[in-house]
Computed example of a mutant assay.
Amino acid sequence: MFVGGNLVTWRSKKQKVVSRSSAEAEYRGMAHGVSELLWLRRLLRDLGFGPKKPMDLYCDNTAAIAIAHNPVQHDHTKHVEVDRNFINEKLDAEIVSFPFIRSEYQLADVLTKAVSTSIFLNSLDKLGMRDVFAPT
């Protein structure tokens, strides 16, 4: 989670259940991300900095974003019904939004999977991480 361009929290968690598709796995991750955003929103409000617009949760899976914005329950989304209702409630209240971001620009990927050298170095720079052992 970034606040004002600064990384304030990061979390990676192994899912407890096996997902039927990558969209389902991403959707479950989105639900956990929304919970984290709600916590951060309450914290900011307690500090006197309540957000005035929806908080962005960037997602690189268009199928998961489509499920979030589809108000109709389909048979293929029945297994994520609780997450769907939770996310729809927050979308309808305009607390969160899910802008699409290309995978190569997804900063969290550098911390969770193998990426190319250029994406790795670019992500480290965006995260403000520096090699303290690099020659000056």
Rank of each mutant, 00 (worst) to 15 (best):
residue 27 Y to V: 04
residue 59 C to H: 02
residue 96 V to K: 00
residue 7 L to M: 07
residue 30 M to L: 15
residue 102 R to H: 10
residue 21 S to P: 01
residue 128 G to Q: 10
residue 2 F to M: 13
residue 122 N to P: 00
residue 99 P to N: 10
residue 113 K to M: 02
residue 109 D to C: 04
residue 70 N to E: 11
residue 14 K to A: 11
residue 126 K to Q: 14
residue 105 Y to K: 15
residue 112 T to I: 07
residue 3 V to R: 04
residue 87 I to T: 07
residue 70 N to G: 06
residue 47 L to V: 08
residue 81 E to K: 14
residue 82 V to P: 01
residue 94 E to A: 13
residue 43 L to A: 15
residue 82 V to L: 08
residue 135 P to M: 12
residue 66 A to R: 12
residue 12 S to R: 06
residue 48 G to S: 14
residue 33 G to Q: 03
residue 63 A to M: 09
residue 57 L to K: 00
residue 20 R to V: 02
residue 134 A to H: 12
residue 81 E to A: 15
residue 49 F to M: 14
residue 4 G to K: 04
residue 17 V to L: 13
residue 34 V to A: 06
residue 46 D to H: 08
residue 21 S to V: 00
residue 14 K to L: 02
residue 50 G to Q: 01
residue 80 V to K: 05
residue 114 A to K: 01
residue 61 N to K: 10
residue 31 A to V: 03
residue 41 R to H: 05
residue 73 Q to M: 09
residue 19 S to T: 11
residue 46 D to T: 06
residue 80 V to W: 03
residue 114 A to S: 09
residue 14 K to M: 07
residue 53 K to G: 14
residue 29 G to D: 06
residue 65 I to S: 09
residue 54 P to R: 12
residue 45 R to S: 15
residue 88 N to D: 09
residue 38 L to H: 01
residue 14 K to S: 09
